[in-house]
Design a protein around this nucleic acid. Structure first.
Length: 320
DNA sequence: GAAACGTGGGT
DNA sequence: TACCCAAGTTT
């Protein structure tokens, strides 16, 4: 069954501009992608039944901009120490920041702690099932709310992460990469191609994400092992290279982020409060160093004591 | 909508 | 080596 323009006209997808003329019929992809997932899905701990909604949520926080391989060990330690949201909420936020280790973007640790506190206070200790309630939690954005609702509770949501966006850009859009920022058109498309049946939609969400992570990768897509190789619009167009402006680049060396990282590393590894001198040692430029430290304090990641002594936060930090 | 926000592995 | 990329969210 090959996709044709006439099929789209029948469904109105082309007429509404949701799909380019050469893109495949969405329903033709469901079976192959879901079957592929059944045979190739990685056995990740947060996919096991015993992970529960809290395990799924913890994994989603950790996986925001951080690769699976680096998340795995920290995830295991985290769940062993804090098996329920209330367990985490009962500890100072600084403990979450410390346990976060070197996963990066430590504000996520603070927000996960805040989410655990909110879940404990507002939802009786259970991760909420409704998308709006998930979205209201600190650190939970559009993607994470949909991911938890879909993966943990089997609901029907468009789960649009960087993997899925890339798969859709190629399979339906015929382009190598999606736009820099998620567009309304991408959200509409993701909702439109979602299978009708709830459990199938949840499976589709996980499957498209996995396909993007393992086969339809950014660098070297393994099209030879792709279950929809013959339907993919990008492939059918000859795999044209990305045209538009160059992809984003994020510099790091010499930035405040690097200084913040070094300062926080000292605090994380220290058992108790740290004197100013220990922090001064990590960066020689005093103005930038002070700015970075002030930023950490403002973000609630560091708590200043008297006489230039600092520690990880012990109380409730500023709302974020 | 752009910019800020960590860290490390792959090429 | 330098750059790209990794299950985003917030301001």
């Amino acid at each position: 069954m090959t996709a044709t323009t006439s099929e789209h006209s029948a469904t109105g997808l082309t007429a509404t501009g949701l799909l380019p003329p050469e893109s495949p019929a969405p329903s033709d992809l469901h079976g192959p992608v879901i079957d592929w997932f059944g045979e190739n899905a990685r056995d990740l701990p947060w996919r096991r039944p015993e992970a529960g909604a809290w395990g799924v949520m913890v994994s989603e926080f950790m996986l925001q901009q951080t690769p699976v391989s680096r998340v795995l060990p920290v995830y295991e330690q985290w769940l062993a120490r804090w098996p329920r949201p209330a367990d985490l909420a009962a500890e100072p936020p600084g403990e979450a920041v410390r346990a976060w280790g070197r996963l990066g973007y430590p504000r996520r640790a603070l927000r996960l702690h805040g989410a655990a506190a909110a879940i404990t206070e507002r939802h009786g200790g259970d991760v909420p099932k409704e998308h709006p309630q998930l979205l209201a939690l600190p650190g939970v954005g559009e993607y994470t709310a949909a991911a938890v609702a879909s993966f943990a509770y089997g609901q029907r949501h468009a789960v649009l992460d960087t993997n899925v966006r890339r798969v859709f850009a190629r399979a339906f859009g015929g382009r190598e990469f999606p736009p820099t920022a998620t567009t309304a058109a991408e959200r509409r498309l993701a909702r439109t191609v979602l299978p009708e049946e709830e459990a199938t939609a949840a499976r589709w969400a996980a499957a498209t994400m996995e396909l993007g992570a393992l086969v339809c990768t950014a660098r070297k897509p393994d099209c030879g092992n792709c279950p929809i190789m013959d339907l993919c619009a990008w492939r059918r167009a000859g795999s044209p290279a990305h045209d538009g402006p160059p992809r984003r680049g994020q510099s790091y060396a010499g930035t405040d982020r690097q200084v913040r990282g070094r300062l926080l590393a000292v605090l994380r590894e220290a058992v108790g409060p740290v004197p100013q001198a220990a922090l001064d040692a990590v960066w020689d430029e005093p103005v930038q160093r002070a700015r970075a430290l002030d930023g950490l304090v403002a973000d609630g990641l560091v708590e200043p004591l008297e006489n230039g002594v600092y520690r990880l936060p012990q109380g409730r930090g500023p709302a974020m």
